[in-house]
Design a protein around this nucleic acid. Sequence first.
DNA 1: CGATTCCATGGGAACGTTTCCACGGAACAC
DNA 2: GTGTTCCGTGGAAACGTTCCCATGGAATCG
Lengths: 341, 341
Amino acid sequence: MATIRDVAAAAGVSVSTASRVIAGNPATSPASRAQVTAAVKALDFRPNTQAQSLRSTRTNSLGLLVSDVRNPFFADLAHAAEQAGLDAGYVTLLGNANERVDQQDRYLNTLIQRRVDGILLTPHGDGSGAIADIVRRGIPTVFVDRTVDGVDVPTVTTDSNKGIQQAVQHLSSMGHTRIGFISGPQSTSTGRERWAAYTNALAMSSLAADVELVYFGDYQTASGAAGMQKLMNLQTPPTAVIAADSLMAMGAISCVHEMKLKIGRDVALIAFDDIEMFTLLDPSLTVVSNNVHEMGKLAVGLLIDVIGGRNPQSIVLPSELIIRSSTSSAEQAGSIITRGH
Amino acid sequence: MATIRDVAAAAGVSVSTASRVIAGNPATSPASRAQVTAAVKALDFRPNTQAQSLRSTRTNSLGLLVSDVRNPFFADLAHAAEQAGLDAGYVTLLGNANERVDQQDRYLNTLIQRRVDGILLTPHGDGSGAIADIVRRGIPTVFVDRTVDGVDVPTVTTDSNKGIQQAVQHLSSMGHTRIGFISGPQSTSTGRERWAAYTNALAMSSLAADVELVYFGDYQTASGAAGMQKLMNLQTPPTAVIAADSLMAMGAISCVHEMKLKIGRDVALIAFDDIEMFTLLDPSLTVVSNNVHEMGKLAVGLLIDVIGGRNPQSIVLPSELIIRSSTSSAEQAGSIITRGH
DNA sequence: CGATTCCATGGGAACGTTTCCACGGAACAC
DNA sequence: GTGTTCCGTGGAAACGTTCCCATGGAATCG
């Protein structure tokens, strides 16, 4: 494989000059520019990134560690972040933590070793372990979607309050008084925040809070199914359920199907996170939507700020209720304002 | 940040000895092993991967370039490949080509520069451009899902023939004679193969092939909707449709919904690619299933073989029809053998 | 016309590892 | 006792860049 030495030799200039031309340094004559450019093309020279990074201490790479790319929410996030990073000249290392702290730590360690310029993370756990390491080392980091108490890094999150409040209000206005909640794990900030938002919203709509109506899942499909089953088997089951993420909503739906019941007719359902497929369901799903794409883009922006030594403000994006058909009985479906995808 | 020099100094040994201990080289005394290990821990030393790679010419990284992680098929593939890679000590660089040759080439160039040890690729285009570059440079490469004519690298693909044949047979046995096909782009091997399989299967079931019944999409959601619309607006629309991938199937479904028609009752639908959500639709979708997880795992295995200098055989995985409810009218639904998720 | 500035250039050190080579001492065989 | 082998160790070169510094010639200024 050709090195910059070969290029310099072929162009009849020194290594320094070759390096300057390749780096776009203006302190070069048109003549050497032309010769080096020609040599680069002729030898099909590609600078060795390892050597560049070793010398310049920049790797032009970002680490993106999400819980699971198979979750459409994170897939969207990964896509948005990767594209935004690419536009800024960064390549993205993707890791899946599989909602497990040990895998997260393992991956963060790899990212430290690789000397990535910055890390984008949907954090899990309490900020000890590898998260403490990256903070201590001062590696530029931005948290996305979730935060960690006591860890002071910029974040991009969604304010679930408004959306969930709208959701409860909407259900209440449709006559629902027993509204179940399939919550995320309380070890995540989103799990805690959404549960609190739900509790608040109940109070604001003057609905009684019944602990029986809350199930604590883990943001994975299976726990959504388990939660729905538990709720529907109550002596007085809820007439409406809110699921705190898309995967648990999917699990809830499959559970309802297995019970030979129908969403919208037998039980209303609202999911947090909007994903394309929810519009295809019959009935299409009412959701609390958050702008994942924007989130990814903004997060990369913040991270680049941090890398640049600036101290950006955290960003909180709004959430919003999108009413579709899953929150009305079949008979009413026609009369509801719907918004497709 | 601590370097191996600092470690050696702290341990009271030479850099060479420190390096040996850290690398697990057996030519070390228990005494120096203990001291170096202690020093590593005390200084929280992490070897600089750039320097290691520069010297050893191995980066322990794989490049994975898929069309779009937001496509559940590729998300599954990415997850499987990433986990398999991690188990073998590799970290994965993920790229999205967005089904575009120029983005694919751009990313492949990045991977060349990064000196990844191997590349996993769902190739797009005709094997010119950057694909030719990586082959010429002898960079270990494995194609997944798709192949490229005339490019001789190991591949892991799915044999669509059996599945599509079963699909047509199944539809034919249900009395369908006009079966539409929303095809993938003919610039991809899977696009060509699945179309051919469909045509063959029609002949085997003694059904007439009508060019009107085939629409050529691009594996994206929008083209599935467009295809379905075109098919349903024919003078004699098909009574059943096969979509060549999950995204186009999703588009087709949304189109059917918009026409106020119902899958299964007004038109039967079979999708290629099984994704979890298809089991949640009402009616649940009959699919031709391929084992994505296995595909990713095997592909990484092949790639590691190639990296190791071996010359592994390409692998072809089978596809299989999974009958659910979307291929029966509502009335018949009860009598069909179904298989959940 | 001499002094100063500017600019393109080349030499060479440095980044943090790995790895080749040489060395010295202990253990062993005769 | 000498000669051979073996093993742990340290020194130093190398990987492919970037970038600081010095150099010399052209251009500019008074």
